[in-house]
Amino acid sequence: MKYPLKVNGQQLEADVDADTPLLWVLRDTLKLKGTKFGCGMAQCGACTVHLDGEPVRSCVTPISRVGDKAITTIEGIGTDAIGAKLQQAWKILDVPQCGYCQAGQIMQAVSLLRQFPKPTEQQIGDGMKRNFCRCAAYHRIKQAIQHAAEQEA
């Protein structure tokens, strides 16, 4: 079935089964490889993307439920002021170890900073606890969020 999709501001189309998770449409049909597969059960957060600005786990979001919502992925988040600040902070503070979870971390952090522009430690803990980092680069992730929060947009 054909699904028109708005991805990172571009109008695209995917011809896939209705139950295909958005993750696989992004990765394998649209060739946007930044969104990652980790657990397939909305546990780890590696596949986090935004639908109309809200974070969702794309591994459990069937394409049929996306509708006309605007999809934003790690490839497109740099055009968002908060997204750009976070990407910059991630680089300066050298957040990644293996780097595999970081697309999901950044997408989650964008929504955290939208909700809490100057988050407390506890807000960072609660907001980010569903994004696993197997390398446990958590200290740097936290520092980068705090660093980005201090920067002017």
């Binding site: 394998d28 060739k31 946007l32 490889k33 930044g34 969104t35 990652k36 597969f37 992925t73 790690i74 490839e75 740099g78 990407q87 991630w90 680089k91 300066i92 050298d94 957040v95 990644p96 780097g99 595999y100 970081q102 697309a103 950044i106």
Partner: peptide, 29 residues
């Protein structure tokens, strides 16, 4: 000296880097 990772740019912008990101013409899964 504190030196940042050479792949950081690609990681934070979601460029293909990992084994799972490999894509070839006419590839099957």
């Amino acid at each position: 000296k504190f030196t940042t990772g050479v792949d950081n740019d690609a990681i934070v912008t979601g460029q293909p880097l990992f084994g799972i990101d490999v894509d070839l013409p006419d590839m099957l899964y």
